[in-house]
Design a protein around this nucleic acid. Structure first.
Lengths: 123, 123
DNA sequence: TAGAAACCTGACATTGACGTCAGAGGTAGC
DNA sequence: GCTACCTCTGACGTCAATGTCAGGTTTCTA
């Protein structure tokens, strides 16, 4: 498929896909005229990249990890990187769970204030 | 306490604290000479701000929510904002958990490749 | 009462993942 | 072959949370 279709199927912009290529994260075949052509697996690749980005992992780190994701083998350095990101993800989950508790407590309090008819943000 | 101590106690830079004030998130008393002085509770406030930032919530949204966090009461609009961020946090947690599974599977694969003596990233 | 250390304002710099635009060429339906 | 749409490269713009620097004032310590 061409870049527009890949963009549509992944929900990622064309610009972003070109950026991924620029970062070495997504390599596509080129037609004689220079247009990019991707296999179906590119969809999963793009989703994986997005997932890593969402975890706060940089392009450089993703680039380091990608071959291992594909081949299943990793050097000690890459393994250390993987473990580092794992810890980071675990920490982020814990922090977000704490944030969730905070939000829930605020929401509960606000709900109570509504039950008791207390107004808010006057003016 | 003055801004330097608050920075030290929260692990946040002085520059960041001034930025929070600029955004209306952190209001401190001023001494006659213009220096900021904060009460002890400012530490919690800063930690809360950081927690919200870590959840991808913008300064503007935090500013909208803060009075409700403090007073416990919220307008319908703010309540909607709170629910919106709650959903977002839940989604982020789910995504991170999926990312964690991915990382674990890659790590497991890499570990297996090491057991079997397969090299990686030659050169 | 020095001098160091902390603080002030203001302003420009940075970073990363894109958005957006210009100008040119490719592709597909009729 | 026309036309509409897609794609290309290259380059500058954006946004948000800071970093950093300059030039000046305040506070602490010896």
């Amino acid at each position: 498929m061409r870049i527009g279709e890949l963009a549509e199927r992944t929900g990622v912009s064309v610009r972003a896909l070109r950026y991924y290529e620029e970062q070495g994260l997504l390599t596509g075949e080129r037609s004689q005229s220079g247009q990019r052509h991707y296999p179906d697996e590119a969809v999963d690749r793009v989703r994986l990249i997005q997932q890593f980005y969402a975890a706060g992992i940089s392009s450089a780190s993703i680039l380091e990890m990608l071959p291992c994701v594909v081949t299943g083998v990793a050097s000690p350095e890459v393994l250390a990187t993987l473990h580092g990101h794992r810890s980071s993800v675990v920490r982020q989950i814990e922090e977000l769970q704490e944030t969730l508790r905070q939000l829930d407590s605020v929401i509960a309090g606000a709900a109570r204030s509504h039950e008791s008819g207390v107004p808010c943000q006057p003016g």
